[in-house]
Write a protein that binds this DNA or RNA. Structure first.
Lengths: 233, 233
DNA sequence: TTAATTTTGTGCTGTCAAACATAAATTCTT
DNA sequence: AAGAATTTATGTTTGACAGCACAAAATTAA
């Protein structure tokens, strides 16, 4: 279910966007060659195996990027927030998507035509450099994650995921509640463990006064302790 | 132990290099701003935490890129072959190295000055595009690996590693012996398992006539079966 | 409201792979 | 060549975590 003509100016305005290095003229070219789409919570933006048609910029909402592994077991690879790109890896590698994207909240995205994007890369070398830097940073993140997920124990993995969510989405006004509301299953799929173990370990953290739980609301009471658990297990 | 003035023309000549899109003039600029270094088997090229000084191109030899994880446990992130780049991720992300590089065979590398490289990216957009594509491909590889290493069982992980080594380094003249000679420990660190389990599982594969073993020589007798084990466990 | 479905929570059991122990074979030293 | 050190090999023990079963709570549907 897609609604056309929705505002996603966010993508062009935000200072945290890779687009900041574009000239006004270049920004206009992109503006003239983009379309906006809205996705309701739970809707799929693209699926593993699909062919990318352009660059997708998340203007508003939250999106999980996940891969289907052995026996359909899901592994969340990345969590996207506005303003950030989605599906750019496959686009730049000239491959089909190797992961799927799903809106975990109502989300608005901006689609930028592939051809225009590549033109821009050739036109503006600063822009190209920014993309190179983003990809390199993301690759470092992925390499770290590989080691974390394979070597840390359950407690460490979960603690790291909570810190990651905190870093990515920040806190609500109370300064402690993580600004994202995931199911226990999603938390498990982010941390490479079963849902039961995610639930169990979250409860343990709560009983140790490291976090507090209220449904899907997770509040971090002791960042330091959480960091320690993430490091030491 | 580094020896200066060693030939690494390979890096500029090879058609599989990202440098192919450079003009002769650009190639000369790089040639004039490079230095060659030789490393003996077992020598470290750079260590996790070091600051990159330039782009390193592996002209000859074989190199493993690995991270130290929990309790010093090593995870091999990547295996490099000529002609290929090493340590470019940290350079492009403008970070310190997050992994170490070690020559597993006598190796010759070519060091290209950081400043010259970035100039080249700004000069030649085709070159920049190539780098973007390489990074995006590598990121896909890393994401796949994360899922593989966390979800597949020992047999599947080892089978995948053997296929990976086969793809990367190819066969000796006999058409079946993998052209790289790793210790069982390295194979274990590539496959996220203990050395004992690598040894044990290799023996099992040999007893199933999927591979044959002769010291560090590993010959693949049944690629198909190996692929099946990699897929199914 | 009741029923159905999904999500969350908890205990129990089984198993895969790490950890440990030990020995044989190979490689490196001196 | 003898000894030390490293790598390879194999058996045994242990423990972390998955798998399963089931119950309670929350959400959605009728």
């Amino acid at each position: 279910m897609k609604h056309k003509d929705i505002n996603c100016d966010n993508c062009f305005i935000s200072k945290s966007s890779v687009f900041t290095v574009l000239t006004d003229e270049e920004k206009n070219i992109i503006r003239q060659n983009h379309s906006c789409t809205h996705y309701k919570k739970g809707e799929i933006i693209y699926k593993e195996g699909d062919k990318p048609t352009g660059l997708i910029c998340l203007s508003d909402g939250k999106v999980k990027i996940y891969k289907e592994g052995v026996g359909g077991r899901e592994q969340i690879v990345r969590m996207a927030k506005p303003v950030g790109f989605i599906g750019y890896r496959a686009l730049f590698a000239n491959e089909n998507y190797i992961a799927s994207a799903l809106a975990i909240e109502d989300s608005t995205v901006c689609n930028i035509d592939k051809k225009i994007l590549f033109e821009m890369i050739h036109r503006n070398t600063e822009f190209a450099s920014n993309i190179i830097k983003s990809l390199a940073t993301e690759l470092g993140f992925s390499n770290n994650r590989t080691v974390t997920l394979t070597q840390k124990h359950i407690r460490g993995r979960l603690a790291e995921s909570l810190l990651f969510l905190m870093d990515t989405y920040g806190f609500e006004e109370d300064g402690k509640t993580i600004r994202v509301y995931l199911s226990r299953e999603d938390i498990a799929n982010l941390s490479n463990m079963t849902t039961s173990n995610a639930i169990r370990t979250l409860s343990t953290f709560a009983s140790e006064n490291i976090i507090s739980l209220d449904g899907r609301k997770i509040s971090i009471l002791d960042v330091r302790a959480l960091g320690k658990v993430s490091e030491m297990g």
